[in-house]
């Protein structure tokens, strides 16, 4: 064994070494820019802005808790080959993106850093005054990071992605500008319908499971009465749920919203105790069926209508779609 082992290891090194330079060698001009995004929403926006210049893959599938997405070997491989990594930022993905980037060890991504599209998001809410674990477990020092549920996110993210893609592909700047402008125009058109939904649900009271719908609530004029989690990241406790149920009944809360990853039974029980109904809403676009961010936002607003058994007037819906 003492003689066999070095031979085996030398063979191993020889086997692996030839492939080491491959990622950089494949970065020639004319090839599509390999982009990896954390969520399908961003992948769709990169596709719309980058057009033929980019090939995009998303990691999350659309059902996950965005703080704890489960990673797979294929994610590591795709990041190792990427030229651009795009995330929401604001510490939304800080539980798993650093580990992914460190595992992938793509020196270009590590040197440039990921594109944090919400880095200078101007509408931050729920920014903690102090950073203290006694005030919660799921601490986001920069504020609530679930900005992809805000109707303003699409255009905002598109502009940041546009700027980065132009840096990486200056020869395609004109096309990227045109793509972005066209996309913003489409957002504006589709957004008319979201504004009509907001007008219908405005002023209604809602409880969240995890505070991931805060931007959506604010955009639609919903009044946030509370959350099932006593503090972000802390599972609901019996005492907190009992107090919240009293408050819900006192204030006439009709809807408890929760994401696909949160325990539906807890939301349903809490809603029933408070005289409300539990409604599951999506928290991001679905990757596997190719859902776009615009379609996701439509689905999200349809979910709000369904939560209160509301319908848009048919003639208005037809004119907006």
């Amino acid at each position: 064994m003492q003689r066999l082992l070095p031979t085996l290891l030398a063979a191993l090194a020889a086997l692996v070494a030839p492939g080491l330079g491959a990622p950089r060698a494949a970065a020639g001009s004319g090839e599509k820019l390999q982009v990896v995004t954390t969520i399908p929403d961003l992948a769709d926006i990169v596709r719309r802005v980058g057009g033929d210049e980019v090939e995009v893959k998303a990691i999350a599938r659309g059902f996950e808790n965005l703080h704890t997405v489960r990673l797979r070997p294929s994610h590591m491989v795709m990041v190792s080959r990427a030229k651009l990594f795009v995330q929401v930022g604001l510490a939304l993905e800080h539980g798993w993106v650093p580990g992914l980037l460190e595992s992938a060890r793509n020196s270009r991504i590590m040197a440039d850093g990921p594109l944090n599209v919400a880095e200078d998001w101007p509408y931050l809410i729920e920014v903690p005054l102090t950073l203290d674990r006694s005030t919660g477990v799921d601490i986001h020092p920069l504020g609530n990071p679930h900005v992809n549920l805000d109707p303003r996110f699409g255009a905002f993210a598109a502009q940041r992605i546009r700027d980065r893609l132009k840096e990486l592909r200056p020869e395609a700047a004109a096309a990227i500008d045109a793509n972005c402008a066209a996309y913003e125009k489409e957002i504006e058109q589709r957004g008319q319908r979201w504004k009509r939904v907001a007008a219908l649900v405005k002023g209604r009271k809602v409880v969240q499971y995890h505070k991931e719908f805060s931007y959506l609530c604010l955009a639609n004029g919903l009044e946030m009465v509370g959350a099932l989690e006593p503090q972000p990241g802390v599972p609901p406790t019996p005492r907190h749920l009992a107090q919240l149920a009293k408050q819900m009944r006192a204030e006439g809360v009709q809807v408890v919203v929760h994401g696909p990853w949160t325990p539906g039974r807890i939301a349903e029980d809490a809603a029933a105790r408070g005289g409300a109904r539990a409604v599951e809403l999506p928290v991001m676009a679905q990757r596997d069926n190719g859902e776009t961010w615009l379609d996701f936002m439509d689905r999200l607003h349809d979910g709000l209508l369904a939560a209160w058994d509301l319908e848009l007037p048919p003639e208005e819906e037809d004119s907006s779609r």
């Binding site: 994610h75 580990g99 980037l101 460190e102 060890r105 590590m110």
Partner: peptide
């Protein structure tokens, strides 16, 4: 000017 990174993956 790479940002500080730990060298060994924490991919679980």
């Amino acid at each position: 000017d790479a940002p500080p990174q730990s060298p060994v993956g924490l991919l679980k």
